[in-house]
Design a protein around this nucleic acid. Structure first.
Lengths: 226, 226
DNA sequence: CGTGGTGTCAAACAGGTGTTTGAAAAGAAG
DNA sequence: CTTCTTTTCAAACACCTGTTTGACACCACG
């Protein structure tokens, strides 16, 4: 039921009431219990119904082909467009955002079915950009740094709107936003790769390395971490 | 009431029931209406009660003093520590996270009282790092990219835990996490600054700069720096 | 002792929740 | 048409929500 997806999307599973759903859908309250076995069954059906997104993502990412940086740019673009999409075709993204904050049993299947494959693609691209000198845990953190920038505008939109009332997210703004996120991320990954390479070169030579590396290394040490 | 803050923090305003709060607190259901005038009054009192955090943040940021990159690192560290803090002293952060997803009237005062001053500090640091060639809107986006990486681990923790079951967030992990976020961000901001400078230099020389050209120029710069 | 104010409590209230029920309607098969 | 299954519907059910109520205990003060 489309209206059920809509209501679940912007009210959350707990706050949504089947009476509201049925009133909007023009049907009876008892019908959902008859066809789905209850509110939970309806929700499960809604969650499982949205499955045309991963293929779209995979398609665009596969089409963009070769260069890792282009794949990352495509990832940010597609991911952001889906997450910020308006209208009825965005309910799946909104439900997923809801699930992240108020997890139900549906989150597990959502993670395994949608999020994990995308994380895999992102991880490959990030790994290529930073090079072989980063281990799996480091790459994992960097992937989350990239993905975080996208979901931020989904999860913190109320705060952003209050903080910058003139900040609008029309389709043009989404484009420059995607470019900003992708540019920042690519620059960060490249910079980290360069820094790691320089640090390794310095270690091999036994010298103290370039100015840039020395600064961040000194900072790490002088920090006196507790 | 501390237990009220606790319950509000991990149940949300709507799902939390005053009966549950009062049962845990060992008091009567009517007392909250007597003292606070209702559930909303209790919540307002709880939200306003947590006000010792901004000063701590401001103190550490002021103490770290001069270099913009150090201030950014301090920002990430303090922000992340607060956001991921466990125990009773973290309820304010958790409530703020809740407010971002399910905004109530309390969000406005939360934004003006806590978030805006921190955003101001972050904006200053980011502006210094990227240099004068970025306008307010660009810097704003970059600030959100930095902050996004921190709040990500708050908002998407359920997803992260399901995606990487071995990913633990003890205090040691938080330290390396902060270092990863800060390092990635600083590298990104530095890279963007270098790219912008190179693009401007190219434009002054009369060469036409499309996005592709700019990107390759960034690449040249990033490689040339080491 | 009495008195008024203050805080606490169990009970009740009015409204909303998901679910169940039993009857009525619609449709398919003989 | 009859019979059977499938679907729809209004009403009721049991439970939970925030709030109100009126009685009861406490306590300083006169």
């Amino acid at each position: 039921m489309r209206v059920a997806a809509e209501v679940f999307a912007d009210q959350g599973y707990r706050s949504a009431t089947i009476r509201d759903i049925c009133r909007r859908a023009g049907t009876n309250v008892a019908s959902v219990n008859y066809h789905f076995g209850g509110k939970a069954g309806l929700y499960r059906a809604v969650v499982q119904s949205g499955g045309a997104f991963t293929s779209e993502m995979a398609g665009r990412l596969a089409a963009s082909g070769g260069a890792a940086e282009d794949r990352l740019r495509a990832y940010v673009e597609v991911f952001l467009a889906r997450v910020l999409a308006e209208g009825p075709c965005a309910v799946h993204g909104r439900i997923m955002a809801r699930e992240m904050i108020e997890p139900t049993e549906a989150l597990d299947q959502l993670v395994d079915g949608f999020i994990r494959p995308e994380a895999e693609m992102l991880s490959l691209a990030v790994g290529e950009i930073v090079g072989k000198d980063f281990n799996r845990e480091e790459i994992r953190l960097l992937c989350m740094s990239v993905a975080a920038q996208v979901v931020f505008y989904k999860h913190c939109r109320p705060v952003v709107e209050r903080l910058f009332p003139d900040f609008r997210l029309d389709s043009a703004a989404v484009s420059v936003l995607a470019e900003s996120i992708a540019g920042f991320s690519v620059a960060g990954l490249r910079g980290l790769r360069a820094g790691r390479l320089a640090a390794q070169a310095a270690k091999m030579k036994g010298t103290s390395g370039t100015a840039t590396v020395t600064r961040s290394a000194e900072r790490r040490i002088a920090k006196g971490r507790n």
